[in-house]
Every structure is written in C-alpha cells, then in structure tokens.
Amino acid sequence: MEVLNRLREKFEITGDKVQRDDLALVETTGKDLIPVLVYLKTYEGFKTLVMISCVDWMEKGKFQLSYNLWNPEKKKNIIVKIFLDRENPVFQTIYKIWPQAEVYEREIHEMFGVNFEGNPTQDEELILEDWEEIPPMRRDFNTLRYSMEKFGEREPKSGIIIRKQISEQYDEWRRK
C-alpha cells in the first residue's frame, strides 16, 4: 500500500506492516496520531472510523489504542496504533473528527480507565452501573474472584474450593 509510503514521508511512523491486501497497520506516536488521522480522512479517503479498540499490554506497562479506519471507495482498511503509558493513560479525544468516536472512547474509559481529554460524556455510565472496582477489562482485575464475592456461591462446597484455587492461581500468575 503506497499510503504507507506517503505517511512515512510526512509523519513519524514507528512501525508498519501490511497484513493483507486491504489491511495495513501503522504505528505512530501520540503527538502525531491526530494529524495522521486527519490526513487519512482528508486526503486518503479513509472517511469512516470503524472502531476504536484498546489492548492492555500489562507486561509492557502500556495500553494500545487502535483506530480502525475504512476507505469505502478503495475498500481498504488501515489501523493506526499508538501506545499509552499504563500508569497514566491520558489521550486526546477525536470526537471532533468522527463524532461516533465519543461512544467508543466512553466505553474504553469505562472498561480500561483510559482518559480521553475533551470527551464531554466519558464519565457517564455506559454499561456498568455503580461500578466501584478497577476497570474490569484491565488484566489485573480478577473477574472470577469478583464474581464469587459479589454473586455468591455457584455450586456445592467442593466447587467453591476449586474456584478458589483457580482464582488464587490466577492472582499468582498476575504477580509474575
């Protein structure tokens, strides 16, 4: 994809990869992301924001945000990735470029705790009502233990022991 060449010329691209004929991955830095997106939208025809997703790279101490764009004329996808610091995950909102990003950002905020500065609705509850724990999609959240504590026993006693063991193993694995 020659788009990548043009991108490389214009922006600071830390990595790229052509996955398929119609799908390319681009990795950039936080400060260049929005220019890249605007460029792709304005000049390259990637008019649609398909989705924003988040990956928790706990070991690396990073969150990865992927912006999946779609060029409806050439039928091409491009995914623009950035990495955020896991301890202080803050990034700019892009809802002024694509209004639908507002909801994706809201969900990522709820599930991963990434802060999108400037998003007007990110603090409203989307799925989780009255959530008090750490964001549940972070990998250090022990969902089984949470379920056991909150929703109580599921099966007779023996089953509980097994589940306890599993959850402890899980915690140990986390600690490694």
């Binding site: 989780l128 969902t143 599921r154 099966e155």
Partner: peptide, 18 residues
C-alpha cells in the same frame, strides 16, 4: 441456574433464585 458459561463474569449473576 448457576451462571452457566458466564460463571466468572464480573457482570452476570450466578443464581437467579436468590
């Protein structure tokens, strides 16, 4: 009945009859 495949979900209840 018992949470089924969502037994470890942070969001799905396990036993309705409670």
């Amino acid at each position: 009945i018992n949470g089924g495949m969502y037994y470890d979900s942070y969001n799905a209840i396990n036993r309705l009859d409670l």
